[in-house]
Amino acid sequence: MVPESVSAAASLPDPFVPQIYRVGRLRRELHDTVTLELAPSAGRRPAFRPGQFNMLYVFGVGEIAVSLSGDSTDETHFVHTVRDVGAVSKAITELGTGATIGLRGPFGVGWPVEAAEGSDVVLVAGGLGLAPLRPAIYHILANRVRYGRVVILFGSRNPHDMLYRHELEEWRQHLDISIEVTVDHAEADWHGNVGVVPALIPRATFDRHNTIALVCGPEVMMRYSASALAEAGVPPERIYLSMERNMKCAIGLCGHCQFGPTFICKDGPVMQFARIAKIFAIREV
């Protein structure tokens, strides 16, 4: 099975030139994390596939890769969820409604949401990793009949730092998806699961022979989750991870995002575990 690739870059006039976008609605998700709607100042926003990313350019500060976190069928704007970890991401989380930002994209290979039709789908997210998976969740919910069992497993540091908490509660109301949330640690008044997200995998119900797993989160969490999925019987070629490396050109030219023999920007960010399992564990890569 090959991930679905879109050469979105080809549909842009010049993939190096940022287009001007305007910040619309903003939502502070957590103390350091903001979700922004970005609408093009002219024309329509390009199509994107769940799992792809844009390069967001704050004028005078710099440019970073950020995954799409909104609904791919909503054609008015892009949605991004950004956590402040450094200069550029901080500047993005501080933008106000009406501010302008440069945007290139969408780029990269997304989640295999179409190839997963007819299979059970297990989505494993850790922390901010729920953001790049959210468009896949919207897609699956909108096309629910095309999938077998749908299992969402989400891990967070504690009950207070939980991304998209209201939405998780909403998804929980669906009778035809199963959602388990866990936190790394909690005080005794938390009645949910405690423990790391890979520990939820052996407890989940899915057909290991016919499951596609989509995993996103910090790299170590993905490594443990992929191992737990493989141990549960999911073949490595049916486990997909979204990888992160620093990016510059985002179109496979500069080599900044090299990961073993692959470039994350054009061969990823979503990659088959079978393809990267060997290089995944090498610390220097």
Binding site: G127, R157, D184, P198, V220, M221
Partner: peptide, 14 residues
Amino acid sequence: HATQLQILDVYGKK
């Protein structure tokens, strides 16, 4: 393994 992952506190800021 679970304890190792918890100690790493992977969801924290680098």
